[in-house]
Amino acid sequence: MTVAYYPGCSLHSLALEYDRSSRLVCQRLGIRLQEVEDWNCCGASAAHSLDQELTMGLASRNLAIVNRMGLEKLTTPCAGCFSRLKTTSLELRKKKSSPEEMGKGDAYTERIPEVTHLLQYLYEWVGPGKIAEAVIKPLKGLKLAAYYGCLITRPRAVTGFDDPEQPVSMDQLLRALGAETVNWSHKAECCGGAFAASETSIVIDLGGQVLEAARQGEAEAIVVACPMCQTNLDSRQQAIEQGNGILYDLPVIYFTQLMGLAFGYSISDMALRRLLVSPLPLLMRKKLA
């Protein structure tokens, strides 16, 4: 299976561990990820907020490159990138336009690549069954809160994936790895999104509610599929703890890092030491590190 791979800006810096673990996990599952050549920003966040034509153009240039590469499917590990690229692909279809036209390129094709989030791709195209077969070291005894956030499943008319209120795909993948997942209230609530730097109090407020819900759900760690969710819940955890007077100590781990661990990759292979709230004490307690 060959699929175009769009890492997005965060996976080159803040979320390098998400990129690395995604690539290794896909390789193990026999999926060939072909990085979109000379990709640009997907158009999320700033462009989306201020300039609708620009956000369409930015996303379209990436989709046009996928066409040029001769690939029909595109997958991305970032929820923000997924939302922009998928929304744009549907808008192009509605407008009967093409990525080449919107991206101000020369050639015109009728093709619009099919966009999936990596969680969706692994869930729908590989499936929990085949993933369970690849497990070498089951994640026994780990109690995890699968956190989907906003844009992987919402809005349903765009994503066409899972249930936006009670999503289950990540829970099923994690259970296929041998872990337990808890039933909790904030699976699909917002973490504060792109406001981490500009309106930090929003992230402290909303991220704090997610952490508190995970604690009440008796989870030992939160599992994410978006670099923004990870960064918000991990990097603002200390400030939230100080504000709430509660020590959460909840590692916020990418789902691909846990897949890799269960597939027999090491702590360093999965770059688990890069997370600010260290998952190592928990993993050692469960004899997984």
Partner: peptide, 11 residues
């Protein structure tokens, strides 16, 4: 300026 674009209202 503080809408999160979380898409919940639309969904």
């Amino acid at each position: 300026w503080i809408c999160l674009s979380c898409q919940l209202c639309l969904d």
